[in-house]
Amino acid sequence: MTIAIIQFGGSNCDLDVLHVLEDVVGTDAELVWYKEHDLDKYEAAIIPGGFSYGDYLRAGAIASRTPIMDSIKKMADEGKPIMGICNGFQILTESGLLDGALTTNEYPKFRCEWTNLRVETNDSPFTSAFKKGEVIRIPIAHMEGNFYADEATLSNMEDNDLVAFRYVDSEGHVTEEVNPNGSQENIAGTLSGNRNVMGLMPHPERASEEVLGSNDGIRMFKSMVEYISSR
């Protein structure tokens, strides 16, 4: 079982994800440069954070139109889990694999800080190791993380349990004060209709070892590995 970590020019969390998968979770992972087009040998893919193509045009826009994304769509169609973190989430929305868009933070500042997230569903390949409603600590680092979707898309997400995480206070309440970027309904992470694609703005790879202040993130990777093994 090998997980592909997709690298674009400007990806910069690729090695952190590799470290967590190999050294902390103990699974096989490989860095895959975006010019590769055959991803058949991989069981899952992670699109890591960074500033692909310098965020030119819009964050994630250029990367989402590269040919490797056709291979990622093929993996998604085959039911393989695909996770996009931060810039990876932006790439997944820009490519149409996930609904909505990520626009400039309401207060247009790069925010790098810890957030509390409420796990909204554990019915996914990425969240099965959590309890629904559990509050976890994962940091964010972004300027374009303001989740936007039209009313119809939002209600579809609500009806189909496609919100994975929301920004909450330490007690698990959704409030305006703890919304770091103006995201609609405090949405921090979402799932695709068939649940095997997830994007989130927070960085689970930066919260996967106790020494970093939290290891809540590791359960996302462990959920993924468990899902792959059970397929």
């Binding site: 626009t103 400039t104 933070n105």
Partner: peptide
């Protein structure tokens, strides 16, 4: 342009 009703943080800052 952004669709009407959407936030324009840069415009607000200016």
């Amino acid at each position: 342009e952004r669709k009407s009703g959407m936030l324009d943080p840069e415009g607000t800052t200016i």
